[in-house]
Design a protein around this nucleic acid. Structure first.
Length: 425
DNA sequence: TCTGGGGTCCTAGGACCC
DNA sequence: TCTGGGGTCCTAGGACCC
């Protein structure tokens, strides 16, 4: 058996924990740059606000119903996530942290327990320890645990806990679940399926296996088996090493000058370097992309440029990565456009422990970050760890011209002393 | 005026190897 | 008449997840 513990309306719930006055108000949280709505409390959902709606399209509705609107506060959500996960981690032998607000638990050794009662214990304890409401779904496969969790969320009769532990229960759960709500079935596949009159999870479970294998490929075949009770997706107890790391942002206002774009690109490359060091990895490739708004009606005003280069050697050094990104910008930049977004991706990652083993073909070229670079980066990370992000940065990292909008940011209640003090004051 | 960010996996086809 | 077998790597594109 697998359990899926999934936080309810996670970002909105995080905002509520430290602001009880919000408990009776609809709450929404915005994407970076305050563009779209990406989290909604139940009340906000009831107002008909859809996931991903651009704020400017529902500004009136938000005002009319006195919806509390927040910029996204990732330091807060990330920290709350790790607090939430401590409880299920303590209550089950194995946990897979699946996303910021979800975890799978291995319940296979709980044969002698009342599983529904245990699920209620998990739910109650998370709520008590963190203030975050969660739902728990349990079933013989991960995909069915997802189905169970969804039912627990949607239907109040479950009171936040749904256990699917028999053929009949599973069959009726599948019949109640639309195929597009199944984990792994997105917009395109559900279109394909409905054209074949496959409309519920039960229909998909019963569809001819060769047809599923042909049109939904190996992932779809696995999914179908999971719906039929055969577990194909094992617990993944250690997070796999990252294959790529991306830092990208939309800009608060259009950027037209090379200098401002240059600073943005340097900042993103610098952030990628920090993430690389945190991951204890080095990168061999770097991709830069820059672009205008894709929503501009004037097609001549649109531009999207992207280019990937090999780095001189696998590196996690901020200066090397920033210089590389800037050299790509020299190639991609076109004057006369109103840039709205840029990003840096580092890829071909390998563990830092392996770096430096490969020598350069040309003896006089460096093949890895120097000892000096390593020490310098260590000092920089240490200072920023102690005095806060951005306390020490390279001169080219600058956010004056392109800073994303973040007008409705809540305090970082759990990670920043200065924010708490200002709240009190 | 105004539209997110960060990831993964799979397939198909071409090109190549011995 | 008849023309091998077994692979890898790379890339672009598509689909999905939260």
């Amino acid at each position: 058996m697998f359990a899926l513990v999934d936080c309810n309306n996670f970002y909105a719930s995080c905002e509520r924990v430290f602001n009880p006055a919000l408990r009776t108000r609809p709450v929404v949280v915005l994407s970076n740059n305050d563009g779209c709505i990406i989290a909604r409390s139940e009340e906000a959902k009831a107002l008909g606000i859809k996931m991903g709606t651009p704020v400017f399209k529902c500004r009136d509705l938000l005002r009319r119903h006195k919806v509390a609107v927040f910029s996204s506060n990732y330091p807060l959500y990330g920290d709350m996530s790790s607090r939430v996960m401590m409880t299920p981690a303590a209550l089950a032998p194995d946990i897979e942290l699946y996303s910021i607000d979800e975890a799978f638990l291995d319940m296979s050794s709980f044969g002698r327990y009342d599983l529904a009662e245990y699920a209620r214990l998990i739910r109650r304890t998370v709520r008590q320890h963190t203030g975050i409401p969660v739902c728990v779904g349990m079933a013989p496969t991960k995909t069915l645990a997802k189905v169970a969790n969804r039912l627990a969320k949607k239907n109040p009769v479950y009171q936040g806990v749904c256990l699917l532990d028999g053929a009949e229960l599973i069959a009726s759960a599948l019949a109640m679940t639309k195929v597009e709500d199944v984990w792994g079935i997105g917009r395109q596949l559900s279109k394909l399926l409905s054209a074949r009159n496959i409309n519920t999870a039960a229909d998909l479970a019963a569809a001819p296996v060769p047809w599923v294998r042909k049109h939904l490929h190996i992932t779809g075949a696995r999914l179908q088996a999971e719906l039929n009770g055969t577990s194909c997706l094992p617990m993944e107890l250690v997070r796999a090493a990252k294959q790529s790391i991306c830092t990208s942002r939309s800009f608060g206002k259009s950027v037209t000058t090379f200098d401002e774009l240059h600073q943005a690109v340097a900042t993103f490359a610098g952030k990628c370097a920090v993430k690389l060091r945190k991951e204890q990895a080095v990168a061999s490739m770097l991709t830069l992309f820059i672009g205008t708004s894709p929503f501009d009606d004037n097609e001549g005003a649109r531009y999207w440029g992207t280019k990937t280069i090999s780095l001189p050697y696998p590196t996690q050094d901020s200066m090397t990565l920033i210089r590389a990104a800037q050299s790509v910008l020299d190639v991609l930049f076109r004057a006369g456009y109103a840039y709205k977004k840029a990003g840096v991706i580092v890829s071909e990652l390998s563990p830092v422990a392996l770096a430096g083993r490969t020598l350069s073909l040309f003896a006089d070229e460096a093949a890895a970050d120097s000892e000096q670079s390593k020490t310098l980066m260590q000092v920089m990370d240490g200072i920023n760890e102690r005095y806060g992000r951005g306390a020490l940065r390279l001169a080219s990292e600058n956010s004056v011209g392109w800073k994303p909008n973040q007008d409705r940011l809540s305090p970082s209640y759990t990670t920043r002393w200065s924010d708490i003090i200002s709240v009190k004051g």
